[in-house]
Design a protein around this nucleic acid. Sequence first.
DNA 1: CGTGAAAAGGGTTCGAC
DNA 2: GTCGAACCCTTTTCACG
Lengths: 154, 154
Amino acid sequence: MGKIDKLDKQILEIISQNARIPFRDVAEQCGVSRAAIHQRVQRMIENDVITGSGYNVNPKVLGYATSAYIGVKLEKGSMYKNVIPEFEKIPEVTECHFTTGPYTLLIKLYARDNEHLMDLLNNRIQEIPGVVATETMISLSQSIKREVPIIKEA
Amino acid sequence: MGKIDKLDKQILEIISQNARIPFRDVAEQCGVSRAAIHQRVQRMIENDVITGSGYNVNPKVLGYATSAYIGVKLEKGSMYKNVIPEFEKIPEVTECHFTTGPYTLLIKLYARDNEHLMDLLNNRIQEIPGVVATETMISLSQSIKREVPIIKEA
DNA sequence: CGTGAAAAGGGTTCGAC
DNA sequence: GTCGAACCCTTTTCACG
């Protein structure tokens, strides 16, 4: 895992918000040449500083009107090894965290509507061996959505 | 908000996972010309089907070893209008959802370490007028992280 | 590690179907 | 709405500082 300097952070701050911006513009904002930007980005990809890229798609257009977090309690915490592969099989599940606090796992999922959400809960998630209880937190509106903060310095 | 057909979905499935893939390759995989891809993508950007793009940065390299979800209970649910702007001022907060269930708000944040997390909780979040209780769910490990599922059909 | 310039490749536009 | 081809800008490479 590579180290990062001020210029790298400056580059990341720009391209983390816009993957299609020409390196020409990044170079101008950073006060270096295009080639330098290219070299830096390449190195950061090799060093797993940059883990990927992508376009952001509006979930509503894809037919997903509902997103929710589900707190999952397991019979025994150690059962997560068998439970997580089951969640991976459910494409609507987009995140799964092993957490401290009231739940063993906290998962995020997308559903077309409330009926679809209920189906996922009753027929998919509750059916997984080891899952003893779930608590559903439907996101009625998401007011903040941004990237990891990049603090400018060294 | 625009409508989407099978070809659009196919394009989205590819570029949502890789913003830098040449349209040439997308065109080949979809069996159409480069110009068609260009036109489709352009239209989807105009119609807010595509909401942006970006590189994914490894949080650890930026000095964030800890991420957590915080369940926030408010004195009154209606206070969220005044509370959310306060969360927006905290750059470590990257998501904020108004939710059903045990909490009024569910927020996601990044912290350098446990000390930093404690500072954010005690000196920033608990200080916000209207916040009466918080419950911290530290993500000890994230096992699933993927995009909104794109189901292939019409 | 950065640079400028040349080479290679992809994005964008165009007229036509 | 799609196509192929031309055009132009960007990425990428390279020898040098």
